[in-house]
Write a protein that binds this DNA or RNA. Structure first.
Lengths: 201, 201
DNA sequence: CGACATAATGAACAATGTTCATTTTTTGAA
DNA sequence: TTCAAAAAATGAACATTGTTCATTATGTCG
């Protein structure tokens, strides 16, 4: 009899099961407590088996984080349309930070270590690309003071990441309310980047 | 005969030697490659000896990072006086980022993991406190649009940290020139935070 | 000198990621 | 169905890690 699930499909299914279990485990224990043996145990398989699907622990974590950031990309894409470019960036800013706070371990891991092995390290670059397109549209529409879309994009990214990263890294710090920080930072930054309010000439 | 170096001094000297060696090693190998056995070897002592001076690897790393951030604090304090509040923040912003880029492993480690054990995790808080004082002075002078010094301080910190952290975490990314990013970000942010240029009434 | 306190040692332990010879399972043609 | 070849899964073994602790060495003072 021929298998109902073709080999490749079965393999892919098992692989994504591993990613799901690993993601679960990673979200719960964090980087330190994350162990391949525990993953194997929860999967009901042997440690060695994991190596038939992933080259290394790092490789598996890469897959875990990548899956998370695909979700971020979709969150950003699913954002309701905004009334103005400025409002759109505000919303995206907030969505980005809130995503990070919802998956702190995953977020942190994505920007963890620059080990030179896996060539293009965990990339939230897809989300970055999306934002760059939005910025480019803004530049074409003349809403920014500067015309350098790349600089603007990188700056916004740095700010979003900075707030997210700090809130995650230092939960014990006496932060002002998150909503206040998110809005204040995005407002200040966008005020600095956008042209002054359109004045009818 | 009584010892030329009193016991406590000898102990303190050995302790700071360990920190120096560990800092060296940590800066070279990074977090992953950092091993107590290598530190002991470079110190010419046994592994167990390290435990007479530090409770754990994490404790030692804490001391290493703390020493680094004392240097940051001094850098910020040693900044030449500026002609305006705005320029002062610009300079501090740049100094902060450049410090992080000069000690990438130390900087990253300071914001690494929120393990709940050592109560008040590696704190660059002293540097934060310094900045808060500067912001408070600015608020008193009425240079900011808002009066909430705490929010302003946290926002600036987040931006500085974000740029620093990203540049460290993704060295392979096609960044715009660092100087451009630093100046653009601090300019945009400060423009958003400061009152519009003083207009003679 | 000798006895006590302090410091230093490094073998031993548990846990980790990774490898690989061995065993089990699946597959497709006879 | 049978059976050999291929693919997949196993888990013991290895090297390396942080950490502990009984043992040894060193320094100090009566």
């Amino acid at each position: 009899m021929s298998p109902k699930q073709p080999r490749a499909a079965k393999r892919a299914s098992f692989e994504s099961d591993i990613i799901a279990v690993a993601s679960e485990e990673f979200g719960r224990r964090g980087f330190e407590g994350f162990s391949l043996r525990k993953v194997a145990q929860k999967m009901g398989c042997a440690v060695g088996t994991l190596y038939l699907y992933f080259d290394s622990k790092e490789d598996l974590l890469h897959a875990v984080v990548e899956a998370s950031f695909r979700a971020l990309l979709e969150s950003l894409r699913a954002l309701p349309p905004a009334n103005s470019a400025r409002e759109m960036f505000r919303n995206a800013f907030r969505a980005y930070v809130e995503f990070g706070l919802k998956h702190p371990h995953h977020y942190r891991c994505a920007f963890a270590q620059p080990s030179p092995t896996p060539s293009a390290k965990y990339q939230p670059h897809a989300a970055f690309d999306l934002m760059r397109e939005k910025v480019k549209a803004g530049v074409r529409a003349g809403v920014f003071q500067s015309n350098d879309a790349e600089v603007i994009t990188q700056i916004i990214w740095a700010s979003m990441h900075g707030l997210t990263s700090l809130l995650i890294a230092r939960p014990e710090f006496p932060w002002e309310p998150r909503n206040v920080l998110i809005d204040s930072l995005s407002d200040a930054l966008l005020t600095g980047l956008f042209r002054a309010k359109p004045q009818s000439h």
